[in-house]
C-alpha cells in the first residue's frame, strides 16, 4: 500500500516536471501548426531550422559564445583557485564566499547591473559585452568545480617537482594541472552549459542585431508561436541534458581511466 502511494507520488512529480517539455517535443514533430490537434509525424520544422539563416546565425553565435566564455572562465577560474591555495585559510574562505554569491544572485539583478555597468563605462553593447557577462557568471562555476579537487590534491607532488629542478610554471603545467584536469573539464562543461542556457543576462547585455538562440526564441515567440521554435527548444533541451550528463558522470569516468 505504502509502496503504491509512493510510486504514484513519484509519477505525479515526474509528470509535473516533464509534461511541459514532453508537450514541446511532441509538438515539434506535429505536421499541423495547430497546438490542439495532431496532423501526423514530420521532421519539417527541424529541416526548416537548418535553412533559416537567422537561426543558424544565432546558433553559431551561441556556440562561439559558449565556447569562448567557458574557455576564458576556465582559465581565469583555475588561475584563481591556484592563487587561493597560497592564501591563509581565513582569507580563502572569505574569497570563496564572495565568489559563490553571484551564483545565488537572481539573474535579473546580475543582468541589470551588468547592463548599468556597461552603460556607465560607455561600452557599446554587442558580442563583447555579452561575452564579458558570460565569463563573469561562469567563473564561480569553475571555482566551485576546481576548488574541492585542489584541496584533496597531494601538495607534495608540486614541491617534489620544484625539488627536482622544475620552475613553478613548469611544475604547475606538468604536475598540478594533469591532476586537476578532471575538475577543470567539469568546470568547463558546466560553464558551457550555463552559457548555452542563459537568457536573462544575455537579454540585458546584448546589442541590436545580436542574438543567441535563447534571445532569438524569445523574440520569435513575441511575434507569434511557430513550430520551428518547438524544434529549436527541443534541440536546446537535449543539448543541455547531454552536457549535464557529462558533467555529472565525468568523475566516474576519471576513476575508471586511472584503473587502466
Amino acid at each position: 500500500m505504502k509502496k503504491t502511494v509512493g510510486r504514484l507520488y513519484l509519477t505525479l512529480v515526474l509528470i509535473f516536471l516533464y509534461a511541459p517539455i514532453a508537450t514541446l517535443m511532441v509538438l515539434s514533430f506535429n505536421s499541423s501548426k495547430s497546438r490542439a490537434h495532431w496532423g501526423g509525424f514530420t521532421f519539417e520544422w527541424y529541416l526548416g531550422l537548418i535553412s533559416n539563416e537567422e537561426i543558424m546565425d544565432a546558433f553559431r553565435t551561441t556556440l562561439i559564445l559558449a565556447f569562448l566564455s567557458a574557455f576564458i572562465a576556465t582559465v581565469l577560474g583555475t588561475a584563481a583557485c591556484t592563487g587561493m591555495q597560497f592564501m591563509r585559510r581565513r582569507y580563502r574562505s572569505i574569497i570563496m564566499g564572495i565568489t559563490n554569491i553571484p551564483m545565488l544572485n537572481a539573474d535579473i539583478v546580475t543582468g541589470v547591473s551588468l547592463m548599468l555597468l556597461f552603460i556607465a563605462a560607455r561600452v557599446s553593447m554587442g558580442f563583447t559585452t555579452v561575452l564579458l557577462s558570460h565569463i563573469t557568471f561562469n567563473i564561480p562555476y569553475v571555482i566551485l568545480s576546481v576548488m574541492p579537487r585542489y584541496r584533496e590534491l597531494n601538495k607534495s607532488t608540486y614541491e617534489a617537482a620544484l625539488d627536482l629542478g622544475a620552475g613553478p610554471v613548469y611544475a604547475f603545467f606538468k604536475v598540478v594541472l594533469p591532476d586537476l584536469m578532471g575538475a577543470v573539464l567539469s568546470g568547463f562543461l558546466m560553464s558551457f552549459t550555463m552559457s548555452l542556457d542563459d537568457f536573462i543576462i544575455t537579454h540585458f547585455t546584448q546589442g541590436p542585431g545580436f542574438d543567441t538562440l535563447s534571445t532569438k526564441i524569445y523574440s520569435e515567440v513575441k511575434k507569434g508561436i511557430n513550430p520551428e521554435i518547438y524544434a529549436l527548444s527541443t534541440i536546446m533541451f537535449l543539448a543541455v541534458l547531454i552536457l549535464l550528463f557529462f558533467v555529472n558522470y565525468r568523475p566516474h569516468l576519471d576513476k575508471e581511466n586511472v584503473k587502466k
Partner: peptide, 30 residues
Amino acid sequence: LAPDKREVNTVFQKYALFPHMTIAENIAFG
C-alpha cells in the same frame, strides 16, 4: 634561494610520485 635552484633532493614523507606518469617518466623528470 628557490628550491629548484638547490643542489639537494628530497624524498618526501608520502613519496609524492607523479600519479599520471610512468615510473620511467617519474625518474626522468629531473
